[in-house]
């Protein structure tokens, strides 16, 4: 554990909680892609199956359980409790275009051809692109609520901090995981355009809106 890793995990946790609180407090999931949230629930479910097979640390177990629990709670709020506010007409990204190729790639490029390892690899690849339906929704509506942009910022920062964590681990522990690193780089790159808008607009007190 190093500072980048811990800060990354906390940023990830902050993102998840910001989103849950936003939906709960405003009683609305307008502007939020339910599809991205389903993908994240799928990511956590397939990645953390090792909860059942191996124990790493209390921290590790606790965070995994919280991430999974929050992911399903978010999906529940969007598709059940506040279904009436869900922006289904704009949330039209075709997730099969992500899940099918990512599933195929997980079968082809993995560390070990075993069920748990393939599912873990699938989750890493899927996480790297799971935000696309959300970014697609924002590009369609042309705007995002400020609280939604804080959520996206924390989520992007999380993976960027993991990149520093991997550099740290490579130098000090000789550890590297090529699958996680490549997917993490892809994931971080997807947020770059958003980071730019966040810094130039949201941090200056303006609402995030895209030119028509």
């Amino acid at each position: 554990m190093n500072i980048f890793r811990l800060a990354g995990d906390l940023s990830h946790l902050a993102a998840i909680i910001i989103l849950l609180l936003k939906i709960w407090k405003t009683r609305s999931c307008a502007g939020i892609s339910g599809k991205s949230q389903i993908l994240f629930a799928l990511v956590f479910t397939t990645r953390y199956l090792d909860l059942l097979t191996s124990f790493i640390s209390l921290y590790n177990t606790f965070m995994k359980v919280v991430y999974i629990g929050c992911a399903y709670a978010t999906v529940y709020l969007i598709y059940m409790k506040f279904k009436a506010t869900y922006d289904g007409n704009h949330d039209t990204f075709r997730v099969e275009f992500l899940v099918v190729p990512v599933g195929g790639l997980a079968f082809l490029v993995n560390h070990d051809f075993s069920p748990l390892e393939i599912l873990w690899t699938f989750s890493i690849y899927l996480e790297s692109v799971a935000i696309l339906p959300q970014l697609f929704l924002i590009s369609k509506t042309g705007e995002a609520e400020t609280i939604t942009t804080h959520y996206l910022f924390c989520l992007g920062v999380y993976r960027a901090l993991y990149l520093f964590n991997w550099i740290w681990r490579f130098y000090f522990e000789g550890f590297f995981d090529m699958i996680a690193i490549v997917a993490g780089v892809v994931q971080t790159i997807l947020y770059c355009d958003f980071f730019y808008l966040y810094v130039t607009k949201v941090l200056k007190g303006k609402k995030l809106s895209l030119p028509a």
């Binding site: 995990d9 191996s54 590297f176 996680a180």
Partner: peptide, 10 residues
Amino acid sequence: ETETTEKDEL
């Protein structure tokens, strides 16, 4: 090569 059995990262 990486360790594939224990995943300590989240």
